[in-house]
Amino acid sequence: MSETRRQSYSQKEKEKTFEKEFLPHIDSMYNFAYRLTFDEDDAKDLVQDTYLKAYRFIESFEKGTNAKAWLFRILKNSFINDFRKKSKQPSKVDYQEVETFYNSEDVDQSITTDLRIETVQDMIGDEISNALNSLDVDFRTVIILCDLEGFKYDEMAKILDIPIGTVRSRLHRARNLLKERLSDYAKKMGYKN
């Protein structure tokens, strides 16, 4: 994706690609932007910014390839470069620190939670959404890309600029954290575990 040949587009083709291939993903883009920023105005700015960049750099979009993955990559980079710095959220764990943590990778051999399927099925929605939102942004992102948006591991690797092995270990860790949060929640609410 990073070393794509520049494509040539006529003005008409640019507009058509933008309308037919880029704009249809706006729901997913906005939802992703909101779950990164937790602010409607910021999410709107982030999506708008992503689309402006996508149009400006349309020559680097290879025709016939996955437009959604390409757009998500731009959005993720815009978020890191522009929004993370001025984000109103409490400051995150240092990125490098998080990566070192993943790479220590004793990918938990243990079974992390005692969540039962009945408990999960009783959850009505807010719990899962809140648990997802409570994860550190890097963990949250892999779950959104994989479970919500259905990206494959190789697409996620390109969107996030990380090796597939890191996608897998990050996803594994993210799911365990999510289950811990859900399990805590279930205990608080008095679900039988």
């Binding site: 706006i26 409607e40 929605g125 919500l148 289950k179 859900l182």
Partner: peptide, 19 residues
């Protein structure tokens, strides 16, 4: 359990309407 969570995420976390 993992499968149920994955399905739940898909159903419940797609909740922001585009302005």
């Amino acid at each position: 359990v993992d499968k149920a969570i994955k399905e739940l995420i898909k159903q419940k976390c797609y909740d922001k309407e585009v302005p």
